[in-house]
């Protein structure tokens, strides 16, 4: 276990310094010795969680969180057999940016979840309320992750929820983005089911929704 902990730290350092070659090397070395896919998953998962926690604590930047997610997603694709990586029986998860064009948060969440074996439907950015609700329905989405940059856009999540409910769709909504991070009660007031403020958060929330589905 100590060896895995060392690898997590080594991998995390490589991610934070945006060193793809080193990050790949850490995973490759570890896998070639033990052939243990679960441990690779642990290394990736734990590293991203710690980086996300670091952002919450103000010691890691958003750009490092983003680049780490991108690197992990690439490595997950490159070094792990896809059939082994995918999770089974997860809810249909989609991610979108409501009204705003900034897709960084969407990409971070997407990368983190893909690096952990989840399939994510990307609905795009700059979507109006009606369009987003329609796309969620068309794609039979069960968990909808909505990212926003502006407060005015964040407040529109309530309308998305309303439209989905009108159509009888039972879609869980997870929100994220600066307005929710800076206003800790906003997610409740817009009727979201949860908010994801960092990597560890989003994984826990998604995992708990998966359990709800199983239960």
């Amino acid at each position: 276990m100590q060896n895995v902990e060392e690898k997590i730290q080594e991998f995390q350092r490589a991610l934070l310094s945006i060193n793809r070659i080193k990050a790949a090397e850490v995973l490759r070395e570890h896998y070639s010795r033990d052939q243990d896919f679960k441990q690779l998953e642990t290394i990736i998962n734990q590293s991203l969680q710690r980086i996300g926690d670091g952002w919450q604590e103000g010691i890691v930047s958003l750009s490092q969180v983003y680049m780490s997610g991108v690197l992990c997603e690439e490595l997950f694709e490159d070094y792990l057999p896809r059939s082994q990586g995918e999770r089974k029986d997860t809810p249909r998860i989609a991610v979108a940016v409501l009204k705003d064009q900034h897709s960084l948060g969407k990409k971070i969440v997407s990368s983190i979840l893909k690096s952990n074996g989840y399939e994510i439907i990307d609905l795009g950015q700059g979507l109006e309320v009606e369009k987003l609700a329609q796309m969620a329905l068309e794609n039979r989405v069960e968990v909808l992750m909505i990212s926003t940059l502006m407060l005015s856009s964040a407040l529109e999540v309530a309308k998305v929820k309303e439209l989905l409910q009108e159509k009888g769709a039972e879609v869980k909504i997870i929100v994220g983005g600066a307005p929710f991070r800076l206003n800790p009660h906003l997610w409740e007031s817009v009727g979201a089911d949860a908010q994801g403020t960092d990597a560890s958060d989003i994984l826990k929330v998604i995992e708990s929704m998966g359990e709800d589905k199983d239960g």
Partner: peptide, 12 residues
């Protein structure tokens, strides 16, 4: 332009 917030950017 929005009716409840500042004007927002579109594509880069």
């Amino acid at each position: 332009f929005r009716d409840n917030g500042p004007p927002n950017s579109t594509e880069p």
